[in-house]
């Protein structure tokens, strides 16, 4: 990648990310009353993370089945209320186990 391209993108990315955090923090003095806007803002983190995870996570490793197993384990561990780190670790270990199993079967 060209450096100019990298830095231009970085500027757009970091600039927008900073401003979307700082402007409301610095300027907001009142509470939002509109129910639609409040509800939309309540749901948006969840819908973003969901759309980012599915189906992209299935193709994040070498093997679709290993990734699917990892994702399933992540959901099962997460609904039991385990912390971010534990969930992430369980997902990774599951992928590793399934990939090793598949390698054994393949031989």
């Amino acid at each position: 990648m060209e450096l100019k391209q990298f830095f231009t993108y970085l500027l757009v990315m970091a600039g927008s990310t900073y401003l979307i955090r700082a402007i409301p923090f610095a300027l907001m003095k009142k509470k939002i009353q509109n129910t639609f806007v409040r509800s939309f803002l309540h749901y948006i983190p969840y819908t973003v993370l969901t759309a980012m995870t599915f189906p992209a996570a299935l193709y994040a490793t070498n093997n679709l089945w290993a990734a699917a197993a990892g994702l399933l384990v992540a959901v099962l561990v997460a609904v039991r209320g385990k912390s971010l780190t534990v969930v992430a670790a369980c997902a990774c270990v599951s992928v590793l186990i399934v990939e090793l199993l598949l390698m054994q079967l393949g031989q």
Binding site: L71, V77, L84, A89, C92, E99
Partner: peptide
């Protein structure tokens, strides 16, 4: 090793799941 790197690529998605799943439940 490649296989370990691969598995670690799922960590970030694991974190997303950990944020969404408990509240959705």
């Amino acid at each position: 090793p490649n296989i370990v790197m691969n598995a670690l690529c799922l960590a970030i998605y694991g974190m997303f799941v950990a944020i969404v799943a408990p509240d959705a439940k």
